[in-house]
């Protein structure tokens, strides 16, 4: 088991290296950040001056080696913006905000998803089941930006139950502002967990020990909650890792809708303004998130299925 974890974690290093290198080459070999930063009306001398100042006029190879060398020491370069803040510094402010959204989203989707899945399974082939599953596939099909805009319009604008976007001023306020973006982020997950949990529950409810539990006169509630849910839970919870890639992508959209100043917003801002060092930093963090998520999913599968452990 430990070897599987070890091998999979080590494999993450070349993966991240390849992604980082490809994005570096793409950003640096094509297009000129100077034009994007100074605007189309900048003179040739201004452009040249900017390139010199930010070092983008040096050969590609030199810049690549410098970047990768810095990365090994945890130095991700300096933002192209006026402030010249270090990329690490920029990421340090943004990451916790997105992490808050992500953590809230995972809690919401696991709790609501499992609950809906259990209800659908217990009431299988009834109107409740069809309804929940219909809503679930609709939840998978409705893109984050559509549900997000709907919530924003109805729950925030019309009813005023939630703040209309933004980040808030203190800790409690941040939480209040995070609720709607986090819920938006969780929609796909709720639907996915509900579907998987329903399938697992249906299988568990058919098993012999459940029949035994019923036969010995346990209440239906106890049978379902104590015996069935507990066993159906494990395979579903190991899927949590797979939520991470979805959250990484979803945060870009959710943060754009609710003006939440996290990594997702930073991604869009830095890409539009061609702040390449920051783009590289966001890509690195996001890939790391996806890799860690996949790793957890693999470990989950390996923990459940002994065959995977030996094949590794």
């Amino acid at each position: 088991m430990l070897t599987v974890i070890g091998r999979r974690s080590l494999w993450a290093i070349p993966v991240l290296f390849v992604i980082q290198t490809s994005v570096f080459l793409l950003l640096n070999a094509l297009g000129d950040p100077a034009v994007a930063q100074l605007g189309p009306r900048a003179s040739a001398a201004q452009l040249q001056n900017w390139r010199h100042q930010h070092g983008t006029d040096r050969p590609l190879g030199t810049r690549y080696l410098e970047y990768m060398g810095g990365l090994v020491h945890g130095d991700m370069g300096v933002s192209h913006q006026e402030s010249r803040r270090s990329v690490t510094d920029v990421l340090e402010t943004r990451l916790p905000r997105t992490a808050l959204l992500g953590a809230m989203a995972i809690v919401i989707e696991v709790v609501l998803g499992l609950l809906l899945g259990v209800i659908a399974a217990v009431r299988r082939n009834t109107l409740v089941d069809t309804g929940v599953m219909g809503v679930a596939i609709l939840g998978i099909s409705a893109p984050t930006f559509v549900t997000g805009l709907l919530f924003l319009n109805i729950l925030a604008f019309r009813f005023g139950w939630f703040p209309v976007g933004g980040y808030g001023v203190d800790a409690m306020d941040h939480l209040r502002h995070a609720l709607l973006p986090a819920f938006t982020l969780a929609i796909t997950g709720i639907a996915t967990y509900a579907r998987v949990m329903r399938a697992e529950m249906l299988e568990t409810l058919r098993s012999d020990y459940i029949r035994t539990a019923r036969a010995k006169g346990l209440s239906e509630f106890r049978t379902v909650v104590v015996h069935a849910v507990r066993n159906a839970l494990l395979p579903v919870v190991t899927l949590v890792g797979l939520s991470l890639p979805i959250i990484v992508s979803g945060a870009i959209i959710s943060e754009a809708i609710y003006a939440w100043p996290g990594l997702g917003r930073l991604a869009v801002e830095s890409i539009t303004s061609r702040d390449d060092p920051v783009v590289m930093g966001v890509v690195l963090l996001s890939s790391l998130g996806v890799v860690i998520g996949n790793l957890f999913a693999d470990i989950g599968v390996a923990a459940l299925d002994p065959r995977v452990r030996t094949d590794g």
């Binding site: 390849v18 992604i19 994005v23 793409l26 297009g31 870009i252 890939s287």
Partner: peptide, 21 residues
Amino acid sequence: VDVLLSMPFLLIVIVINQVFD
């Protein structure tokens, strides 16, 4: 395939699409 599946898909697609003027 492993590398491609480890990419933050939406982000990478946006970056590449933006690079092409």
